[in-house]
Nucleic acid binder design. Structure first.
Lengths: 339, 339
DNA sequence: CTGAAAGCGCTTACAG
DNA sequence: CTGAAAGCGCTTACAG
């Protein structure tokens, strides 16, 4: 309770309790070998003094920080919000703290974050859709359990990937089945693994299902503003497009906005679909048909697997897990406006 | 490069360089008192060995963790996404890590988080709109610099608050000026400081500007689903309402969805406004009139002030800062559908 | 059941 | 400019 300076340490508690610091440590950590009376006295004094063990000191000796580091490409928008929420849920369940770090889409910053987190975390969750294998090999701390998410993997890392290819393929299949014939894709950022896989699914589905159709891809970067621009560009250059497939929901929201401004009705004049199923997707007008990723589950699952790896290094499953996506059909792509 | 076991420490670098650990420490930390040649040799070997200082050990002696803890009420939605993004920006600029923690709206969890973060962080950013002063007094670590955000403050904490009252008041003023006379409020969660202040602004403005009007408040909880329900309830019980003021944008999005489903046009049949100006607000149809909070700036500013307090404890400005809001008029509340 | 002591990996006066 | 040594606050064999 002193006004300034050092906070109360285990020594203070020991002194007040008339025992050794070893006993205080044992009592606080729930070791059996302390008499109930001693334990009670120690706990009482610790509470009274508002004693909190010093995290760094404990980490130094236990080699555990009780912290997981998450290196994400960005922190903007509902996708990352949901992802972090899922990670937080699982971390909290495991009694762990969550350190977040954004690389702003830059490989250099990813490398920096990876190195800076070394020694501060018990495990690493890395989503780095723009990273190449070399970057990871060079900067992933060898001794820190790591889970890769939505990242191009070549080594035998433990990983969790969304089945972007299958999701995009299925979406195109759905559009074709509904009678759409001129389907444009608003792509995600270049070099981005998710974006590339979604594009690959779109292109392959087109080849398989509409052999005569020419793929029509407009650049985007996963932001609402990009969707806005893309929709206008599509209407300008190819008014015959009857369905727009935005590579993520944020861009679909931007497309929807632009189409409305252009006086076009979705889905009557043009169908619109997205990818991710962010919470907002069901609240647009019309509600958005999209590919559900279960973003929070993704974060939760990745965190849970990482924790398991940390706690049971022997059972270490270094497998590459792929999360299936699910088509969610809402009103934004009713066939020819009849739905 | 050994395959297993302990990572490389300062001792390994010292041995390889043929110097003492003190010199390695000095070289790595950029102290003047090392000859350029020695420094170069040490740095070279450190790089070669991929040496990274052990964070916990360094923290133990320097009493700095290079980490800021953010205790937030929730992690759901664009508001917190933007807030975290702003915090991350300022933290990164200061070379600090960001530890996030959600209290899920519970006072107990807030208390727990506050205590658990002790000794792990150099400073604390606490947004706890549901907390009372007692909880903070009981659980805020006395020696850790802290900034409160959007929190009911009584003590002399350093704080940053959004001017919710003035923002809500101004919004009602705008609606009244536009000719709306029956204005319903979809409120935020009970006990929530932001929600209460916004409601207070609404009620006072009504008393001042429309003395004959009876306040009409519908319960909400800041989620889209609550907005959806509230709008339906309003239409059901009071079809004469000509403007709906949702206490945040997420609820406004839910209202917009419900109104559309009910076959009502915004703003022709009923005006709709929100609060926060989340990124999505400009992409709804019609774009949402709202109160701009500059959420990312809020997080950035809070972090910057906190860092300043940590670095210059003497200049410690413990002031209560209030961030002004700004009315953003878009098309969702054109007067009587003429705009 | 309990305590004295070593040690985790650093940094920093203190000497030289 | 450089090194030996102390010490940060804990935990954990090792004795007793």
């Amino acid at each position: 309770m002193s006004a300034r300076g050092s906070s109360v340490t285990i020594k203070d508690v020991a002194r007040r309790a008339g025992v050794s610091v070893a006993s205080v440590s044992r009592a606080l950590n729930g070791h059996e070998s302390v008499t109930p009376e001693t334990r009670q006295r120690i706990l009482g004094i610790a509470r009274e003094l508002r004693y909190m063990p010093h995290g760094a000191a404990r980490s130094l000796i236990t080699r555990r920080t009780q912290t997981i580091g998450a290196v994400l490409p960005d922190l903007y928008g509902e996708f990352f919000s949901e992802l972090i929420r899922g990670m937080d849920l699982a971390a909290r369940r495991g009694g762990l703290h969550l350190l977040v770090s954004s690389s702003h889409g830059s490989a250099d910053e990813t490398a920096h974050a990876l190195r800076a987190l070394q020694g501060r975390v018990d495990g690493l969750l890395v989503m780095s859709p723009h990273a190449d294998a070399g970057l990871l090999a060079d900067n992933l701390p060898a001794l820190v359990p790591t889970m890769l998410m939505n990242t191009r993997v070549d080594g035998d890392y433990a990983s969790l990937n969304v089945d972007n290819y299958a999701g995009a393929y299925a979406m195109v299949g759905h559009l074709v089945a509904r009678g759409f014939r001129r389907i444009a894709l608003v792509a995600g950022p270049a070099q981005n693994f998710d974006a590339e896989e979604r594009r690959r699914g779109y292109e392959q589905a087109l080849r398989d299902l509409l052999p005569d159709a020419v793929p029509f891809v407009v650049d985007g970067d996963f932001t609402e503003a990009a969707g806005d621009r893309a929709a206008r560009a599509i209407r300008e250059s190819a008014p015959d497009v009857d369905a727009i497939f935005a590579a993520n929901d944020a861009m679909a929201v931007g497309c929807l906005f632009a189409l409305n401004e252009l006086g076009l009705r979705v889905p009557r004049d043009v169908a619109l679909v997205g990818f991710d199923d962010i919470p907002m997707a069901r609240y647009t007008t019309p509600p958005l048909t999209t590919v559900r990723v279960r973003i929070a589950d993704l974060g939760e699952r990745a965190m849970a697997r990482l924790i398991a790896r940390i706690e049971q290094p022997d059972h270490a499953d270094a497998g590459a897990e792929v999360l299936a996506c699910e088509l969610v059909v809402r009103q934004s792509c009713a066939s020819d406006g009849t739905g």
